[in-house]
Nucleic acid binder design. Structure first.
Lengths: 238, 238
DNA sequence: CGGCTCCTTGAGGTTAATCAATCCTGGTGG
DNA sequence: CCACCAGGATTGATTAACCTCAAGGAGCCG
């Protein structure tokens, strides 16, 4: 039956997520029952700041960005969300979305209505602890973002590059000189990256050029290599 | 019995808090049982960034600041906490504190150990929903802080002043001209306020002087009055 | 080929941090 | 009572960061 196959897909997506990855089969089943699958093309708006809050989302595949529109037209990117992560959790207990979300690629995602989810949480304390953990992680991350914004652009960029290598990073270490080199790929356009770093493309370009000139990184299109990890870490500390 | 009086005090403090204000008597009782009352003088460190995370805190009276120390010695204030609010919730599921907390006045606070609290939450789904709500509010607030930091200093100051009047604000509206005037008092030294706004005392001083010269606010020591609400709101939008 | 978007590079201007001097205000001790 | 000092707050001058505006490339698709 196709329904069986469909729920199998949903279950798998849920199990692959950071937030629900370790739930019991029973819990996954209950959760799957309230999820509403969606598919969106690149550049679609998931919700806008000020929209009435009805649901939060699990991103099954693709990538989205969470951002604010400043009055002068600039956009401030708060967060890039990767497959397996959730976004919009903050509206579980708020009445409107505090920011905008737009897809950066073709996406599959699950809409999880707040009322249904809250009812579920009331039945499953374990689920509550889990989402508490997720929100705690978000809080820590936002704390870091705030700290970062008080640093100069080169430090922000250095942190981003180091973080990127650490997570999505090529363990492609070349056991050569000082700590070896790390290879990785920029996941977005430089325009998006600049917004994510709270700066403009021109400044990002200059900063990357500076890093390349001084031999700290090597850059070819989206592929980059950290040649001097120590120097980059020093730069990340203001 | 003194024990009875003591628990009465704790219960009242809990009930006065934003987070636990609407719990049932039974829930308050269980919570009170795991709270550890503390009294601290001005300028005391509650915890430091990197400390192993064992508890979060409810501030019963006084005021504390949450801040990060930047490598160059500057301090970045993330948040000022008032009586009745909680702080450190983010460590409920993290293993170390992500920032420092220091008292700005004499404080009474309650240490709430994470393990005991988590056990309590597992028993009381309602409590879980409640703290979820609190963390959602925190998330929204941090979102705002990030957005603010991308604005120029005058806009940040304008938002702070408007927000202050709206919350702690004198409803002392003088029904005179454009929307009337609002009177309020700066709750901290200008040094602390500058840190809270992510700037330095010199710049704050200049910006306040500028606002005063242009007749938007009147300032006398800590007492200030918003003379032109509309102008300040315009300034808050970059 | 022309138009497009994305990225880079250059020149100039603006914001705000830094450095430094002065002015209060309150407290202390002669 | 007053000279003195310490800390916070202000003001001025200088400097640095980075945004803005403007002008090219380089790849891509009609």
């Amino acid at each position: 039956m196709s329904a069986g196959i469909l729920t199998r897909v949903i279950d798998d997506d849920l199990r692959r997520s950071t937030l629900f990855g370790t739930l019991t089969d029973d819990q996954i089943g209950k959760l799957a029952a309230i999820c509403e699958p969606q598919s969106l093309p690149t550049g679609a708006r998931v919700f806008a700041q000020g929209d009435p809050a009805g649901a939060f989302y699990l991103l099954a595949s693709g990538a989205v960005k969470v951002f604010k529109l400043l009055r002068d037209g600039r956009t401030a990117t708060l967060r890039h969300v990767d497959a397996g992560e959730t976004f919009g959790e903050s509206v579980l207990f708020a009445d409107a979305y505090p920011s905008n979300v737009e897809t950066m690629e073709e996406c599959r995602l699950y809409r999880i209505p707040t009322t249904a989810f809250r009812a579920l949480v009331a039945d499953e304390p374990d689920l509550a602890l889990r989402i508490l953990g997720s929100m705690a992680r978000l809080l820590v991350m936002l704390n870091q973002r705030i700290e970062e914004l008080l640093l100069p652009v080169p430090a922000r960029l250095a942190r981003y590059l180091l973080d990127l290598c650490a997570r999505r990073g090529g363990p492609t270490t070349d056991g050569a000189a000082t700590g070896g080199t790390l290879v990785c790929y920029l996941p977005t356009s430089k325009r998006e990256l600049a917004a994510r770093l709270g700066t403009v493309p021109e400044t990002l370009s200059r900063t990357l050029a500076q890093l390349t000139r001084s031999g700290v990184i090597a850059l070819d299109e989206a592929r980059f290599e950290i040649l001097d990890v120590a120097a980059l870490e020093r730069m990340a500390q203001r």
